[in-house]
Nucleic acid binder design. Sequence first.
RNA 1: CGGGGUGUAGCGUAGCCCGGUUAUCGCGCCUGGUUUGGGACCAGGAGGUCGCAAGUUCGACUCUUGCCACCCCGACCA
Length: 493
Amino acid sequence: MSKEFDFKSREEDYSKWYNNIVEKADLAEHSAVKGCMVIKPYGYSIWEKMQSALDKMFKDTGHVNAYFPMLIPKSFFSKEASHVAGFAKECAIVTHYRLKNDEEGKGVVVDPNARLEEELIIRPTSETIIWNTYRGWIKSYRDLPLLINQWANIVRWEMRTRLFLRTTEFLWQEGHTAHATSEEAIAETEKMLNVYADFAENWMAVPVIKGIKTSNERFAGALETYCIEALMQDGKALQAGTSHFLGQNFAKAFDVKFASREGKLDYVWASSWGVSTRLMGALIMSHSDDAGLVIPPKLAPVQVVIVPIYNGEEQLQKISEVVNKIKKALEDKGISVKYDDRDHLRPGFKFAEYEFKGVPIRIAIGGRDLEKGTAELARRDMKTKENILQSELVQKVEGLLVEIQQNLFQRASDRMKAGTQQADSYAEFKKMLDEKPGFIFAHWDGTTETELKIKEETKATIRCIPLDNKKEEGKCIYSGKPSVQRVVFARAY
RNA sequence: CGGGGUGUAGCGUAGCCCGGUUAUCGCGCCUGGUUUGGGACCAGGAGGUCGCAAGUUCGACUCUUGCCACCCCGACCA
């Protein structure tokens, strides 16, 4: 019996549990560079599944992909005042372009003669370089809307990092669109928020609240920031995606004007929106349990694993014949199947391994099944198993994949519901945060001052003002001033 | 960036306080064999800049200083 695969339980140590899963399910590991991670093949293939689903959704909504450089002239940043203020503290800067051999023979050193005339920033986001480019692309209303997305890596120099949730370098997509009117840009911003929510719920099986950020939490340079917020199993909120209405801020900063149908020149209206490898963190923390990772079928690199149980090589061959037929039949239905016939590991070991790697369905076929025409079918989400006829396997598996997907969403939704409360006084609010953290709906007077005070005293922030919020008269839990609606508070990642 | 902790083989660790042959054990890995319905067993074997760098010393895993990385807590953020 190996200790290697023993997980910390969520109860025992939530962060350790999370790190264990990331490492032991082979998703990612720390790299030689502080704050940066290596995404391992198994983890990356989940990200690829996310990418391809999202990419299709973007294309289906009229967007095209392009690529802009990773290095941005420093001067670009200062063109939009609040943007530079928001990102200045976390920028990596390229100052030189050459190394040379150290004259004292101590390896290579930066060549002081190779200083860049203008320093380059490694993109923390690409608004500036993109809007500088758009100036040349947009002349007329006929050039609009411009609907572009890019898949890229970016760097934000973070103080404290956690695999997937916050790393110095991360992968993401960023959409940058240009429109003739404010209304159109806002519609685009909202449309992409809906795409994100759709993806989170229907692919990741993660329920989210759609909302608007307070001015304090808004993206640097945006007029309005929309977001999807998810609730993790420890009661902390996770911002899973954002979509920004940028107004004419970047158009003005980079002088991007278009001639309208009437022949008038006006600045272009903009949106930008993004989701990142942080989604991996959301996925892990939404569904996984004390036995390891749980992946919804639609994002699982391997949906079905088949493990043979045999006695001797001869029997293995017979089983393999049956398995290969089943495998083919499943694959014909578009299901990804792995047949694990490694001989040096026993079935029990494999069972455990696929459990902590989160494979949704496991089929075991042994000598007894050979005679009876049966198989053992186990589902990861419930950790249950049953014996069924091989002849019913394909149909059963197809249905089960759908069922597991739905079950995970249902379970996560129930958790979110159970973790969502209403507080009507500050005392009650603080008690909830301590005793049963989660989303807390409470009245707020709408001022940044109150928001910051609450944050300072409780570490809870306003996650968003839900889009479907019902208006309700009330009093701010902190200041007692009148409020027209409840907002969502939580401690967050 | 502040407080706390950790760093010895792929993983988990003993040794360090009180310096002294060839650095301990378990798991994993390799070879061969027996096994295989929930984390197999036997035999043999390989694998180490003791996080890095200086210093003290006849001698450093052990003492001193500096640095690095990771974890936890804070400030900051997707």
